[in-house]
């Protein structure tokens, strides 16, 4: 029952997004523009790219993510759909996990699209793709889980587009530092280090906390 509800919510969100492309178009355009502007503004050498490339990449993902996450619960406000979901037999954790998975899929797709753009403009390709994908999955899930929870928390606020980044980015700092450190190591071709274990622990702890508290967040 839980997984069927999760699947239904996730499929609904992805289906709606595929039809409107609101978050997708905005976040893709944002990612490409940022990567392009930095490439022309600094014209970095390959050594410089190894130093700040991962930072640029994760900053782009974090800001593009805000565009995706802002829409997550906000799209439920239209016509009071959120009330209908909360009044339905869907459990709050299933609603949350379904939305988080849809957000993850959208953000990960944006990242996969941006990665070759980064490689092209900065002439940098990671020596190994599997570790990079692993850190992208772990880092993106961490960004998604925090963002989705705060999207639910701020959904009824008048200035939610402003409040969400204000609340979310401080929470994301540890994740971004860990993801940047690991990505720098991957681009340099060295061992991934402690960051991966930190990301795994962060994902587990914050997913558990979010699932436990989401009913309180949604119903009060």
């Amino acid at each position: 029952m839980f997984f069927r509800q999760v699947w239904t919510i996730m499929a609904k969100d992805l289906h709606s997004e595929l039809r409107t492309k609101e978050a997708w178009n905005a976040s893709i355009a944002f990612s490409v523009v940022i990567l392009l502007l930095f490439a022309f503004a600094f014209d970095p050498s390959s050594d410089q790219i190894r130093e700040f490339g991962s930072g640029l990449l994760w900053m782009t993902y974090a800001f593009a993510g805000a565009l995706v996450l802002n829409r997550s619960f906000a799209r439920e406000l239209q016509n009071d759909c959120l009330d209908a979901l909360i009044a339905s037999p869907v459990s709050s954790p299933a609603l949350f996990v379904g939305k988080a998975l849809a957000n993850f899929a959208m953000l990960f797709a944006v990242e996969l699209f941006s990665l070759p753009v980064f490689g092209l403009f900065y002439n940098t390709w990671p020596p190994r793709f599997a570790p990079l994908l692993l850190v992208m999955v772990l880092g993106t899930w961490a960004l998604t889980i925090i963002g989705t929870l705060f999207s639910a928390l701020t959904v009824n606020l008048r200035l939610r587009e402003l409040m969400l980044p204000t609340l979310v980015y401080p929470m994301m700092i540890p994740v971004l530092i860990a993801a940047m450190t690991v990505t720098t190591n991957i681009l340099a071709g060295t061992a991934m280090g402690f960051g991966v274990r930190f990301l795994v622990a962060f994902d587990i702890i914050f997913t558990t906390l979010a699932v436990v508290f989401v009913d309180t967040v949604l119903v009060g």
């Binding site: 239904t8 009330d83 979901l85």
Partner: peptide, 25 residues
């Protein structure tokens, strides 16, 4: 529940809206 809002997704068709809620229930 039938509240003030219609609680339907504008970007989905009539059949998709009702099928969605049928699945949720």
């Amino acid at each position: 529940v039938l509240g003030h809002g219609i609680a339907l997704y504008d970007e989905l068709s009539a059949i998709e809206n009702l099928t969605l809620f049928g699945r949720l229930y």
